[in-house]
Nucleic acid binder design. Structure first.
Lengths: 344, 344
DNA sequence: TTGTAAGCGTTATCAT
DNA sequence: ATGATAACGCTTACAA
């Protein structure tokens, strides 16, 4: 058994409550007593028991992290470790710990969240994704449990504190960038259609086309899951178009997918950027590693995580803070996968 | 405030202790009462409070995860998400939750571990790395706190349950593979020398050379941190050797590093596998994505994590289980970066 | 400024 | 088979 507050109290000849107050640095305890108690704590090697404290306080100083149902895919993506680093840093600065909800599918994860929340294991929750219909979000909302979302909520945008990029704008910027290079046939390869980020980026892409009076073609729009193979399938589809209708540039929703695209093009003998330009999203390590290095929209993943932690904790410390929408800036990082088209 | 065991007790007209026994499915409670109590729990939407339970039980059902001090680098590596998936699955199957120790440097992480452990936040700990001198390991060992290590402990191998590959054998197999292809000048590009895995793999490499009576050259051994740029520097060094002394094959300790190597070779106009073969480790997504796809030693990262969870939990459930050394199999996955040398 | 005691929601021991 | 009650280690009125 460990050293408890009582042991310290005895050792320092004070009451347990006094020790507790010293820990909390309560100003109404005399400096002499504080000194004495702190001495005793050192001497005995005392460490406060978080569990007991949590029970008394009704607060654990732990944040629950929720990944999307398809965690295996999500984990593969370099997005995850980076956002986790941000979350971790934000949490650590405020002495919060991070706990992962585990589970194989959405059902298991949902149950995990319910247990965490009702079981009082966590003070708040961060959703690392945003999708169209989400039981977990609904649940948290109904219970009025503190949570922050990374991404833009599909519903209740005004009621849910979230940290996000302006993905519509980012996709518009990306598309504009290609248009300004002179491209007119631009394809959009997006991710899972149930993710809000996909929807938003598609909107931005469309807006850019409209504004530039370029035609919008259904068969230029492809949706694949956020993974390598997705990129490969997509390319094959596009390359079945008649030569003169094939896109000269691609907006790809994810670096990993873009890498799949790149490899497939490579195998088909189509070269980047000479024959086709690629502009992707996320700017993870992958984009630098690719040959040619990919131009990519840097969405500042670390900051996404960092701010999510910060704002959730702020809310936990002061439940009065209003709902916030935090937008993290994005930036196009030009590398070597985007050039002007060799005209028609 | 939430529904407690007392509310359920009242609603079902029994004592709180009875409710508790129903939760534990204690056989000495009549089926009728169980039925009645369960009904009440459903009716009221009761969920047990983990914190209170933890306090009473002196056990949290939470496992602490410790990453190496240089977490930022570690997080970047695809190793991390994969091992996490394995850990998560093993934990989930046994209803354990995972909590991350956060911190920027080794000092902070050490303090985090101490707090976690002494604060009673976790029942056991998994170290996701193994390094040469490790305060954290020493601390856990001295306190006799349950933990499992992924990797091979530098000291006390017989006393510490760990899950590992046979890295020496794996590196020997890798080197042998190249030797059998006909290579005689083989370089080893390893990672951080403070990591035990690096040491082990180097040993395996040396053994292979010795057994094949190939000379061991200091200048063929390079150590870089486990990252992309590391690979680049390493290549430059090797390519400064006189033409006829340059290695024809490379054993690279990590896929990510191998990718750096590959790109640099590419830029130098050296082609793989024609001019130089590359065999790397880990077989993460990266190795498939590379061009040419990299031959790699699959070390079964997922299983590493899965078994670590399993064995720690086994130990937690039954403190009597003896120390174990669990070896996860490895396998060379041949792709296109390894060929026989164009013999000079 | 400090001590006493109740309470946080469980579990477990001892009665009955 | 079930109920009372103490205990887990801490916090926080309320007293002194």
């Amino acid at each position: 058994m460990s050293i408890t507050i009582k042991d310290v109290a005895k050792y320092a000849n004070v009451a347990p409550s006094t020790v507790s107050r010293v820990i909390a640095n309560n100003p109404r305890i005399s400096d002499r007593t504080k000194e004495k108690v702190r001495e005793a704590m050192k001497e005995l090697g005392y460490h406060p028991n978080f569990i007991a404290r949590s029970l008394a306080n009704q607060s654990t100083q732990v944040i629950g992290l929720v990944t999307p149902g398809s965690s295996d895919v999500f984990f593969q993506n370099p997005f995850f470790p980076t956002v986790l680093r941000g979350l971790s840093e934000g949490a650590h600065e405020n002495q919060y710990a991070l706990q992962l909800v585990t589970g194989q599918n959405e059902e298991e994860i949902y149950n995990g969240v319910v247990q965490m929340v009702q079981g009082g294991r966590v003070d708040g929750v961060i959703l690392l994704y945003s999708k169209v219909e989400d039981r977990i979000l609904m649940y948290l909302r109904e219970r009025n449990f503190p949570f922050v979302m990374i991404g833009k909520p599909f519903n209740f945008v005004e009621e849910i504190t979230h940290v996000d990029n302006d993905n519509a704008q980012a996709a518009k910027d990306a598309t504009d960038f290609l248009i300004e290079l002179g491209h007119e046939r631009i394809s959009f390869i997006g991710g899972d259609e149930n993710l809000v980020v996909t929807v938003e980026r598609l909107t931005g892409y469309e807006n850019a086309l409209t504004q530039a009076s370029l035609p919008y073609r259904e068969d230029y729009i492809l949706h694949q899951s956020f993974l390598l193979e997705g990129g490969q399938d997509a390319v094959c589809e596009l390359m079945e178009l008649p030569l003169m209708e094939r896109p000269t540039a691609l907006v790809v929703a994810d670096d990993l997918m873009a890498l799949g695209v790149l490899n497939t093009l490579n195998e088909l003998g189509i070269s980047v950027p000479e024959d086709i330009s690629i502009l992707s999203f996320n700017n993870v390590l992958t984009s630098e590693m690719a040959r040619p290095p990919l131009s990519s929209v840097d969405i500042n993943i670390f900051n996404l995580g960092y701010n999510a932690s910060k704002h959730l904790i702020e809310r936990l410390k002061n439940p009065e803070v209003p709902v916030k929408r935090v937008i993290i800036e994005h930036e196009i990082v030009k590398r070597f996968s985007t050039e002007a088209p060799v005209h028609k």
